[in-house]
């Protein structure tokens, strides 16, 4: 079995639906899941799916992409601070790089991340997009 396929399979919970962990000892939200709380160092194994809501902490636009991502340039990679606390690294989508700002509210969507060639698997995972489009319009 291709090790890339096995690795992608192991990560499906966190990649498709932001499944992290909740520390039963100190209440810290943990993402990605790592079974030991980074704050209090106690075991943490209770799965918790994060809301996917957060804001751009910082970002960078990629013009020269690593292998597997060339087709998507230019794209923006951001550190997203989730409302539960963890900061995750992810691509932004559905937004031109020039419109990205620090502090911009974003929400998680599941999109194609890459493919393993023409015949290999398609890798899906979380990206973030501007969160304002429907809350604002329904109030208008």
């Amino acid at each position: 079995m291709d090790p890339k396929v096995v690795n992608d399979w192991r990560l499906r919970g966190q990649r498709y639906r932001l499944e992290g962990e909740l520390c039963d000892h100190c209440g810290e939200a943990i993402f990605p899941p790592r079974d030991i709380c980074p704050k209090c160092h106690e075991p943490a194994k209770t799965p918790q799916t994060l809301s996917g809501r957060g804001e751009v902490y910082t970002f960078s636009t990629i013009y020269s992409a690593p292998e597997g991502f060339e087709a998507y340039t230019p794209y923006t990679v951001a550190l997203v601070k989730l409302e539960e606390g963890p900061i995750v690294t992810a691509q932004l989508t559905d937004v031109p790089p020039a419109e990205v700002q620090i502090g911009m509210p974003v929400e998680m969507v599941t999109r194609r991340l890459r493919t393993h060639g023409e015949e290999g698997t398609i890798v899906y995972g979380y990206k973030f997009r501007p969160a304002s489009f429907w809350h604002a319009s329904t109030q208008a």
């Binding site: 498709y16 998507y72 691509q91 599941t110 999109r111 194609r112 398609i122």
Partner: peptide
């Protein structure tokens, strides 16, 4: 659909 969208991502949302 954008570059990172397909029937699966549309169905998911």
């Amino acid at each position: 659909a954008g570059l990172d969208e397909d029937t699966v991502t549309i169905a998911m949302e």
